[in-house]
Amino acid sequence: MEEVKNFIKECGAYFLATVDGDEPKVRPFGTIEIFEGKLYIQTGKSKNVSKQIQKNGKVQLCAMNKTCNKWLRLSGTLVRDDRREPKVHMLEAYPELKRMYSPDDENTEVLYFKDATATFCSFTEAPRTIKF
């Protein structure tokens, strides 16, 4: 899991795909952290992405590292964690978000991956998969 987090952080941004009815929706994200042995992302409950995840938690993200010409696909189910502690952890890791979010507001949302499968890919090597 640490390898997955580090790879995504090196990329700087990743794209998260959700389902909205029968349509895929993809948008850029930038938050990724490990807290209490789980891989978390952060968003706002007022956003469409949050509403889509609450209806169908199955998501996939993709991150490309141009430096090494490798990419990562991470699939799993996102689960909302409403506790204050993971929100504080995420906002400490991404202090720029404190302008928009607070661990005590009604909007801040952190979600962790459950039943995740990460596949590292490149054009020159066989894919390598990690499950957590």
Score class of each variant (00 low, 15 high):
residue 77 T to D: 09
residue 89 H to G: 00
residue 119 T to Q: 12
residue 115 D to I: 01
residue 114 K to G: 01
residue 120 F to I: 07
residue 40 Y to S: 06
residue 106 E to Y: 08
residue 50 S to Q: 01
residue 64 M to K: 10
residue 57 G to N: 10
residue 54 Q to S: 14
residue 46 S to P: 00
residue 47 K to D: 12
residue 110 V to Q: 08
residue 109 E to A: 06
residue 120 F to Q: 04
residue 90 M to F: 03
residue 51 K to S: 13
residue 100 M to N: 11
residue 77 T to I: 07
residue 109 E to N: 03
residue 54 Q to Y: 10
residue 69 N to T: 06
residue 109 E to C: 07
residue 44 G to A: 14
residue 39 L to K: 05
residue 56 N to S: 13
residue 79 V to Y: 01
residue 68 C to N: 15
residue 66 K to P: 05
residue 91 L to Q: 03
residue 107 N to E: 15
residue 63 A to Q: 13
residue 51 K to G: 06
residue 44 G to E: 11
residue 112 Y to A: 02
residue 88 V to E: 15
residue 40 Y to R: 01
residue 89 H to Y: 08
residue 71 W to E: 04
residue 99 R to P: 00
residue 51 K to T: 12
residue 98 K to G: 00
residue 119 T to A: 01
residue 114 K to R: 14
residue 103 P to F: 03
residue 62 C to N: 10
residue 45 K to C: 04
residue 62 C to G: 06
residue 82 D to W: 03
residue 76 G to Y: 07
residue 50 S to T: 09
residue 116 A to R: 03
residue 64 M to P: 05
residue 46 S to E: 11
residue 60 Q to C: 15
residue 46 S to Q: 02
residue 113 F to R: 10
residue 97 L to N: 09
residue 93 A to N: 12
residue 71 W to T: 04
residue 74 L to I: 09
residue 120 F to S: 08
residue 90 M to K: 06
residue 96 E to D: 14
residue 63 A to R: 13
residue 80 R to Y: 11
residue 45 K to N: 12
residue 53 I to V: 15
residue 57 G to M: 11
residue 92 E to K: 15
residue 91 L to I: 02
residue 109 E to Y: 00
residue 58 K to N: 14
residue 60 Q to E: 15
residue 44 G to C: 02
residue 107 N to L: 12
residue 108 T to K: 00
residue 44 G to Q: 12
residue 92 E to H: 12
residue 74 L to K: 10
residue 53 I to H: 11
residue 70 K to T: 12
residue 108 T to N: 09
residue 105 D to A: 00
residue 72 L to D: 08
residue 115 D to P: 00
residue 116 A to W: 04
residue 101 Y to F: 13
residue 71 W to I: 02
residue 111 L to M: 15
residue 76 G to S: 07
